[in-house]
Design a protein around this nucleic acid. Structure first.
Lengths: 191, 191
DNA sequence: ATATTTCTTTACCAAATGGTAAAAAATGCA
DNA sequence: TGCATTTTTTACCATTTGGTAAAGAAATAT
């Protein structure tokens, strides 16, 4: 089916797969849909799934000490949705992963995700490359504390051009570390 | 020798090693010393080494568009110094890694670092756990853009209590995304 | 020990951002 | 369609932070 193909294309960036390996990846995965506002993963629980975003935008978020909802990252098409370090170490997550729009995901349980190393040669290497790229991109595409708010906003537009149009401004504001009033003002001054 | 032992202790957190494996790790590594201000790794070159900090503090840094020297991270005892993603992908680094104090490091060339998978069972897994933990800590201990400057400073003191006393204020200021004048003022108001 | 350099603090004012409140616009639902 | 809810914009003023400059303190070199 077509949505699975976008996952396979993605994985092929990181290593080679033969036909039977592709089949066993497809057999391990499940497709799910999330409505806007639903959670893929919740704080206070040990994460149990790895998701691949086929369609839609999600966000990683948490509540800070003041109880404010802070967006830590955006996860759009062709990337992994998972609290990976806590998944691996069986620790409680502090973050939620929430659908910002209606979403389609391909999901692996932890067991399926790890079990693929038995049927797919080089799966561990592929897996690690995917996870490391995710972490790296998150850190390099994220807002830079040494820039002012306008620059952070402009960088965000470059790094996530489509996300801007698909999620509420307040999520972007907390991601960029400004109030939504400030971001609205900044946006006005730029245009 | 004693300094190698701190490396072995570190690696043992991530997997088991037998005596001959420990020996081959020690045989692959070299000890070096860096004077304050010297570079372990430079922007514009493909990184070729992985370092383990035995003593001292280094910083990852770059020059932004305005030509300002920005500290991206601090690397103290018992952690890895490397531009890992660019090391793996053979790409030019954009960052320097500079000694903030006189330093002692244990160094592996890329070939040595990767070649250990032939002599140490489970080296790939150990390696990946080390690198992922590094990335994760860097992202979680780093300054949070949604906090104000005072909170970022207080968090920094918690996360890097010793570093504060060992590096110039201006490095910490650029790391926290404030001018050194502001940080000086903030520090005064807190005490 | 002295001179030089680097680092840190202080001061002043301009600019950016936050907090509160409310209006306007957009969206979703009955 | 019309109503209720959510989202975005605007305005006002207080607070924080930046930019520039200079003085004081500490470290380093000669």
């Amino acid at each position: 089916m077509l949505t699975m193909d976008s996952l396979i294309d993605y994985i092929l960036r990181f290593g080679h797969l033969n036909t039977s390996e592709i089949a066993s990846i497809k057999a391990s995965a499940t497709q799910i849909e999330l409505k806007k506002g639903e959670y893929f993963s919740e704080a206070g629980a040990v994460p149990r799934q790895v998701g691949f975003v086929v369609q839609g935008v999600l966000r990683g978020c948490y509540y800070n000490q003041a109880g404010e909802d802070i967006t830590r990252c955006f996860i759009a098409e062709d990337s992994l949705a998972a609290d990976y370090l806590n998944l691996e170490s069986h620790q409680l997550s502090t973050d939620y992963i929430q659908a910002c729009t209606d979403c389609k995901l391909i999901v692996f349980s932890k067991a399926q995700w790890e079990g693929l190393s038995h049927t797919v040669a080089g799966w561990d290497s592929i897996k690690n490359k995917m996870v490391q790229l995710c972490m790296y991109q998150k850190s390099r595409k994220g807002p830079v504390v040494s820039q002012d708010a306008s620059s952070r906003y402009l960088e965000f537009l470059k790094n996530y051009p489509d996300v801007m149009l698909r999620v509420p401004l307040r999520y972007i504001a907390s991601y960029l570390g400004v109030t939504q009033q400030s971001l609205s003002r900044i946006r006005k001054n730029i245009t």
